[in-house]
Simulated assay, not measured.
Amino acid sequence: MVTNDTPTAPRDRLPPLNALRNFEAVARRGSFAAAAADLHVTHWAVGKQIRLLEDWFGVPLFERQARGVVLTDEGAALLHDVSHAFDRLAAGAGRLGHRDAVRRVSGIVRVNAMPSFALCWLLPRLCDFQARYPDIDVRVTTTSRKLRYVGDAFDVGVRSGSEEGAGVVSRPLMPDQRLPACSPALLRRSPVHSVDDLRHHTLLHSTTTRTAWAQWLQGAGAADLRPARHAEYDHTYLQLAAAVEGLGVTLASLPLIERDLAAGRLVCPIAAPAWRALDYTLVVNADRAEDGAVSAFERWITGMAGQASGSSDAFQRS
Rank of each mutant, 00 (worst) to 15 (best):
V138E: 10
L147W: 08
M174A: 07
W213Y: 02
D128A: 10
A153V: 13
H193D: 03
T141E: 14
A181E: 01
I136H: 03
T141H: 12
P175R: 15
D224I: 06
T209E: 08
R132H: 01
K146R: 06
Y133F: 14
P134V: 13
P191F: 02
A166C: 01
E163M: 04
V169H: 11
R226W: 11
R171M: 11
T142C: 13
P184F: 05
R189Y: 00
R189D: 10
H193K: 01
I136E: 04
L147A: 04
R139H: 13
R188D: 09
H193R: 06
A131M: 07
R178N: 10
A222M: 09
L179Y: 05
G165Q: 06
D137M: 12
A231C: 04
T202D: 03
L173D: 09
V195Y: 02
L186W: 02
L187G: 04
A214E: 12
G167P: 00
S183N: 06
A153E: 15
D234N: 07
P180Q: 03
T209K: 08
S190C: 13
T202M: 07
L186R: 01
A223D: 15
G161H: 02
P191D: 03
L204P: 04
P191K: 00
G161W: 02
L203Q: 06
A220K: 11
A214T: 08
V158L: 09
R145V: 08
T208Q: 10
A185C: 03
R132E: 12
D234L: 07
R178V: 12
P172E: 12
L225D: 05
R210F: 07
Q130I: 12
E232L: 01
P180N: 03
R171K: 15
A131W: 00
L173V: 11
P175T: 14
Q215S: 10
R159S: 07
T143G: 08
T209R: 09
T207G: 07
P184C: 05
R188N: 03
A166S: 09
P191H: 04
F129S: 06
C182H: 03
D196F: 09
Y233C: 01
D135M: 06
M174T: 08
P191W: 05
A166K: 09
V138P: 12
A214S: 08
V169M: 10
L147K: 02
L225T: 03
R188K: 09
V158G: 03
Q130P: 01
S206C: 07
A220V: 08
D234T: 06
S194N: 08
V150K: 12
S160Q: 10
L187K: 02
R199P: 05
S170I: 07
T209D: 08
R229F: 08
Y149E: 15
Y149F: 13
L217W: 05
D197V: 01
A228S: 04
S162D: 09
H193I: 00
R145F: 09
C182W: 08
G221P: 13
S170C: 15
H193E: 02
R226D: 03
T211D: 09
L198P: 04
R178H: 11
S206K: 11
C127W: 05
T142E: 15
T211S: 10
D234K: 01
